[in-house]
Design a binder for these strands. Structure first.
Length: 256
DNA sequence: ATGGCCGCTATGAGCGGA
């Protein structure tokens, strides 16, 4: 069972790129973020032609998440269902291939002085509360997506340049650690503890060419899935060339 | 120190992204 998370940065601008990658890699479950499109305009036909079913939660211009699967997608939830309700489409969950899949696009936060920063930190707390009331760490659960936080300096090309910047501040890292403490493993880190591998590179300048990136896209798994994980890699090749997303897909393979 | 690129919008400049 192969699962991928990928911040696609507009699914309409990236449809051909996505289709080509799916055709070549044939994952069973695909978690997309930043689709940037209302549900009526989502390119369903293009993914259905490849054999995927899809559940989507989008909005105009910003955010938007979707889960594609080669199998049935059951018990679909959109948003946290908490109070007050969020007007940003950032989380969708479904059960497929025997796994509860929670796909998230965590708020960016802008910078440490922005009012988006406390919103981001609070969002992590709401995500953990959502997990607590909807599932269990004893079950096979994947929480994945663009988490907009580096776990530690091993996920940062230049810890000096990024020190206390957004994605690298201690409160953000504590928020991510607090989520993991519910009962989730950072499965890429388990496989590649030495770090130095990125999932995002800035469009500006020569950051990709010089491999100056961050690892902010994560696949977190409960114990039973961590034990079943055969491999977890970041497909850097998908960041190359014209019309690439600024994020690369993260792929986990499970012996299920 | 700043911005550099990209996608979006009842566009043509400004915002958000990270």
């Amino acid at each position: 069972m192969k699962l991928v998370t990928w911040n696609i940065n507009s699914i309409r601008a990236r449809t051909q790129r996505l289709v080509g990658w799916l055709d070549a890699n044939r994952p069973d479950v695909v978690c997309l973020q930043e689709t940037k499109v209302e549900d009526a305009q989502f390119p369903l036909e293009a993914v259905e032609k490849l054999g995927y079913r899809a559940v989507i939660f989008g909005q105009k211009s910003y955010n938007g998440v979707a889960i594609l699967s080669t199998a049935e997608l059951a018990d679909v939830t959109r948003g946290f269902g908490d109070d007050p309700a969020d007007d940003e489409a950032r989380v969708i969950a479904a059960t497929t291939h025997g796994i509860r899949v929670v796909n998230v696009y965590v708020p960016n936060g802008q910078d440490l002085t922005s009012d988006r920063y406390p919103y981001k930190l609070a969002w992590y707390g709401r995500l953990r509360a959502f997990l607590e009331r909807t599932t269990s760490p004893e079950k096979p659960v994947v929480v994945c997506g663009d988490m907009n936080v580096t776990a530690d300096d091993h996920d940062v090309w230049s810890p000096e340049a990024w020190r206390d910047q957004i994605h690298c501040s201690a409160p953000e890292r504590e928020a991510l650690a607090g989520l993991r403490a519910w009962g989730l493993d950072d499965v890429f880190r388990v496989k590649r503890p030495e770090g130095g591998v990125w999932s995002w590179w800035d469009y500006r300048g020569v950051s990709f060419f010089k491999d100056q990136g961050l690892r902010i896209d994560h696949i977190l798994t409960t114990r039973v899935l961590t034990a079943a994980c055969a491999a977890c890699v970041i497909d850097r090749s998908a960041r190359k060339g014209q019309d690439a997303s600024d994020h690369a897909p993260v792929v986990a393979t499970f012996g299920l």
